[in-house]
Design a binder for these strands. Structure first.
Lengths: 212, 212
DNA sequence: GTCTATAGATTGATAGAC
DNA sequence: GTCTATCAATCTATAGAC
C-alpha cells in the first residue's frame, strides 16, 4: 500500500458514488480517479465491480445490523420479563435510532444512507439481492416483533404497513441533503435527532392506525 | 409506419424496461429488440435515449396529473363551500386514487408505476429533473392543501410527513408485483382496492399524528 | 501492490441505401 | 419511415513490467 490504505479509499469512494450516481452510472475510471488510486486497483483488491459493491454493503451492514438486532432483542426481552406486549414505538425506535447514530459516528458513513435508500428501490435484481442478503433476516425479525406488538392487526396488514415504513425511511435516506427547493415556511434542512422524532411520530401512528 | 404505430411500441417497451431494469441499465438495442422495431427508430422518432424517457413520462403524467389536480381542487372547493377545513383523508385520497385507477384502466400502464417509484429514488439529477418537472407543481398543491387541512401542525412538520408519504407510495409502486418471498401468514399479493385502503389508513394516521 | 497498456465487448448515435 | 452498417466513445477486466 502507498497512501492511507488503498482498499479503504476505494470503499469510501464507492460508497459515495454508488449512492450519489447509481451503481450502473458509476464507472471504475471515475471511481478510482475520485479515490486517487489506480484503475486496476479495484480488480486487484475486490475482483470485480460487483464484488466491490458487496464489500461496501458488508463493511457497514454487518456491524450496524448486529446493533439493531441486539436492540430489537432487548425490547422483546424487556417485554417478556414485564409480561407485557412490546410497544410499537420502542420496536421501531430500536431499528431506526442505530441507523442514524451509526452514520453520524463512523466518519464518512453519512454517505452510506443514500446508497441504502437507493438499494431499496433498485430494479436490478443482482444489486437488490446483495443488499437483501444482509437485510432480510433483520426485516423478518422486525416484522415478527411488530406482529407481537400489534396483535389487533392481521399479519397481512402489518406486512404492508412495515412495507410503507421501509419506503418512508428509504426515501428519507435517499434525499439525505439533496433537497433543491423547499416550500416557503419550511425551515430546517435536517437535524438528525429532530428528523428521527418526526419520522417516529409518523410511522408509529401509521403502524398503530385503526383499520377502516 | 409498418405495424401498430412504431412510436407507441417504443414508448411501451421503454416504460416497462426503464422501470424494470433502470434507465442506465437498459440499452437501446435491448429496448428496440423488445419493441420489435429497428435500432435506429428511437433516434429517428425521439432524437435520443434521454428524450425518449421524457416522452415516456409525458404520455402518462400529463393526463394523470390533470385528473389529480382536478380532484384536489374539488376537495378544496367543497371545503370552502361548506366553510370547513378539508379533511386530510379526502386530500390524500384525491391524490392516490387516480394513480391506481389510471394505471388499471389504460392498457399497459401498470408498468408505469415501478418507473415512477424508481424515479423518486433516482440519484441521477438529469432523470430526477425530467420527472420532477411534471410533479413539482402538483406536489406543491398537495402540500399547500395539506397545510390547510392540518392547521395544528407546523409547515415543517407537514413537509416531512408528506415526504414520508411520498416515500411510502413510491416504494409500493416500485415493488408492484416484485415480491419474491412473503412472510408466513401474509396472504394477498396485491388487490388494488385493498392496497389503496391499507395505504390510506397508514398515511392518514401518520399525517394526523400528534407531535411528541 | 502499483502501474501502463490494451484487449474485448458494448454503448448511443448517425450516415446513407431503399 | 425503415433498414444495414458502422463510427467513436466508453466500459470492465486483465496481462505483464516494475
Amino acid at each position: 500500500m502507498s497512501r492511507a490504505d488503498t482498499k479503504e479509499r476505494i470503499l469510501d469512494a464507492a460508497e459515495r458514488l454508488f449512492g450519489a450516481e447509481g451503481f450502473h452510472n458509476t464507472s471504475l475510471r471515475g471511481l478510482t480517479s475520485a479515490a486517487g488510486v489506480n484503475l486496476a486497483a479495484v480488480n486487484y483488491h475486490f475482483g470485480s465491480k460487483e464484488a466491490l459493491l458487496e464489500a461496501v454493503f458488508e463493511r457497514r451492514l454487518v456491524p450496524l445490523n448486529r446493533v439493531r438486532r441486539e436492540r430489537l432483542e432487548a425490547v422483546r426481552e424487556a417485554a417478556r420479563r414485564d409480561r407485557v406486549l412490546p410497544g410499537a414505538a420502542d420496536v421501531l425506535r430500536a431499528f431506526i435510532e442505530p441507523t442514524l447514530h451509526f452514520c453520524k459516528m463512523e466518519p464518512g458513513a453519512e454517505s452510506f444512507l443514500p446508497l441504502v435508500g437507493r438499494a431499496l428501490a433498485e430494479p436490478d435484481d443482482t444489486i437488490r439481492k446483495i443488499f437483501l442478503r444482509h437485510m432480510e433476516p433483520l426485516f423478518l425479525l422486525l416484522y415478527e416483533t411488530l406482529c407481537e406488538a400489534l396483535p389487533r392487526l392481521s399479519r397481512t396488514q402489518i406486512f404492508w404497513r412495515l412495507h410503507f415504513t421501509i419506503g418512508a425511511m428509504g426515501h428519507t435516506m435517499c434525499m439525505n441533503g439533496r433537497f433543491k427547493i423547499l416550500p416557503p415556511g419550511v425551515e430546517t434542512p435536517s437535524d438528525a435527532a429532530f428528523l428521527t422524532q418526526v419520522l417516529l411520530d409518523y410511522i408509529v401512528a401509521g403502524m398503530e392506525a385503526p383499520c377502516a
